[in-house]
Design a protein around this nucleic acid. Structure first.
Lengths: 139, 139
DNA sequence: TATTACCCTACTTATTTAGTAGAGTTTTCA
DNA sequence: TGAAAACTCTACTAAATAAGTAGGGTAATA
């Protein structure tokens, strides 16, 4: 299951990506528009800022804005920050690799064999999509 | 993350698939060989039996055995039984569809757009793999 | 300089996962 | 026949994670 954190984070990024310019948007505006608990959204946006996707401006007229163009924001990176590893098991993870303590040999492990393919296929999708690609582009 | 239930279930199926014949294999043998808590494995095998993948024989010399040939057991079906929906959000699920109560329109939803692709790619992998395909085939 | 709005820590609640405990039932083989 | 093997089933529990709450702190701008 996709966590709410990821879901909300993606929606917030998309909301910012749909803005005409890069003027700061208040958390409250995003929260209201996307039906997200404001406090929860605060923490999500904070982690997106710390990861370099967003920047923020304090004080009156402040808010969050994208640091890069939507077509430069890859879903691979976004998903890793919001959801964590893309792989479903640590033993096939590129960025968060860990061996299984119960498995004697990865090379003959059925789970490994299957999950490697699943990881690759998911990765292909995330690499093929930028924020631009998932915007709604409505008037 | 893949749940332990799914992981153990797959390993158990693979263990049975690697048997030369279809003689019943005791739970204890599988549990020991695959490093799984026997009691937990019991419940997993039970659900695989109820779903029609396995059958069991009671009494001395009893155990579990595959009902079909490994090349007739599709990962799509196995994953749905063990792990549940393949989709990461209910609104893109084929078999467990549910609309999101916080989302006004699926057609313009970025999360929907992305997760639809992820589901399709995962589904392609699972449809392309039978139990036979993930066996280790070692001497 | 007051207000706006982000920043940060700590706590709480609900849900799911992963298992444990234990009694019960069926079957087979000696 | 009868004892043991081995599956069946229900209920309970502990740990981890997710999701959210509470509340005060801090910086920037008009």
């Amino acid at each position: 299951m996709l966590s709410k954190k990821t879901k909300y984070g993606l929606k917030a990024l998309a909301y910012l990506g749909n803005q005409k310019d890069r003027k700061p948007v208040q958390i409250s505006e995003i929260a209201e528009h996307e039906n997200i608990s404001q406090k929860f959204l605060e923490s999500i946006l904070l982690s997106l800022r710390k990861s370099g996707f967003l920047s923020s401006k304090k004080g009156k007229g402040g808010g969050y804005y994208l640091l890069k163009n939507p077509d430069q924001i890859y879903m691979t990176d976004v998903m890793r920050v919001l959801e964590g590893p893309i792989a479903m098991v640590p033993c096939v993870s590129l960025n968060f690799y860990e061996s299984c303590d119960d498995c004697p040999d990865e090379r003959t492990c059925s789970v490994h064999k299957l999950m490697l393919q699943v990881r690759d296929s998911a990765l292909a999708v995330y690499r093929n999509n930028t924020l631009q690609d998932i915007l709604c582009n409505q008037p």
